[in-house]
Design a protein around this nucleic acid. Structure first.
Length: 307
DNA sequence: TGCCCCCTGCAG
DNA sequence: CTGCAGGGGGCA
């Protein structure tokens, strides 16, 4: 369930490890996971070098030399994991990655709770992999919802996924006034639907929407037209607060999120309501977290302190 | 604007 | 074995 903090964590990890590396080979194990725009050939990326890695909403952009880019969406279960080439069972000097989770034998265990766990790469969920100069980048995706798309860099703004995205939550134009305006345009929608709409603000998914509403003391079911200006101001800062917290803790690993080094995030330990059904609210209200279904999504809130 | 679909794995 | 997990596209 990668949302903005998880995607940002992956992007930062990839930036550290794959920039400057050349793409030598692309292996496609699941055809539907690999797409290309009509203007480019799927082989266009071969022989090109990674210039930078960035993020737009929940989308990942790997910018290549010769003005090509890879646009990647992890959707629900996608992972982008970089493994350096091994020489004699040890990482080469230039590809050493001390942050990798290792088991007792010093083998990579991908942050698995079982110390002896060793996952094969490619795994049965690897849909695409890119062989780079010093290692391999694996795109794993259990549920096959995600994709890797080859595009010309100049066409990215017109890409059908990118062009629908709203404002970045850390853009200085994302103000409380902007959010107020968006809410006024959706008076009959519940507030959770507004803030998790990627066309409004890009990056909040189910987890961080529930968390932001908790910190702003707003019940997810509240209709847009009932939200006041002071509440909007609180919501605006809560959105930035929960996203920053998520990034600080390297994202939330509840199902299968892993960062670019195969390590899980820690944000699940700091969630106030998400995945805490029936547990006591962290506030002083003595309420218990409730879980309801809203907009077809599991929705968590504290009935005592969210009005 | 809300609901179904795309998929797979896992909890109940 | 059923239903749920939920990002986002597409459709009525």
């Amino acid at each position: 369930m990668p949302e903005l903090p998880e995607v940002e964590t992956v992007v930062r990890g990839l930036s550290r490890h794959i920039v400057g590396q050349k793409i030598n080979h692309v292996e496609i194990k699941n055809a539907r996971s690999f797409l290309w725009s009509t203007k480019v050939k799927p082989t266009a990326v071969l022989g090109h070098t990674v210039k930078s890695v960035s993020r737009r909403g929940k989308g990942i952009i790997i910018n290549l030399s010769k003005d090509y880019s890879l646009l990647i969406h992890l959707k629900m279960t996608g992972q982008l994991i970089y493994i350096p080439s091994l020489r004699g069972g040890k990482p080469t000097k230039q590809s050493r990655l001390p942050r990798y989770a290792r088991n007792d034998k010093g083998r990579l265990n991908f942050g698995h709770p079982d110390k002896n766990f060793e996952e094969e790469m490619p795994s049965k969920h690897t849909r695409v992999w890119l062989e780079l100069s010093k290692g391999t980048l694996y795109f794993n995706d259990q549920r096959k919802f995600g994709w890797v798309k080859v595009t010309a860099t100049k066409d990215i703004p017109q890409d059908k996924f990118i062009k629908t995205l709203g404002i970045e939550p850390f853009d200085k134009k994302f103000t409380s006034a902007f959010l107020w305006d968006a809410i006024q345009h959706r008076p009959r929608s519940n507030i959770k639907a507004v803030i998790s709409d990627q066309k409004v603000v890009a990056g909040l998914g189910n987890i961080y929407s529930d968390e932001a509403l908790f910190y702003s003391h707003l019940r997810p079911t509240r209709l847009g037209k009932t939200i006041t200006k002071p509440e909007t101001t609180k919501l605006h800062s809560a959105i930035q607060k929960v996203l920053r917290l998520g990034i600080k803790h390297s994202g939330t690993s509840i199902a299968n999120y892993k960062d670019a080094e195969g390590l899980p995030g820690n944000m699940q330990k700091y969630l106030a309501v998400y995945d805490r059904k029936g547990l006591p609210c962290h506030g002083t209200c003595k309420g218990k977290v409730e879980k309801i279904r809203l907009n077809g999504r599991g929705t968590h809130f504290c009935p005592a302190c969210q009005e």
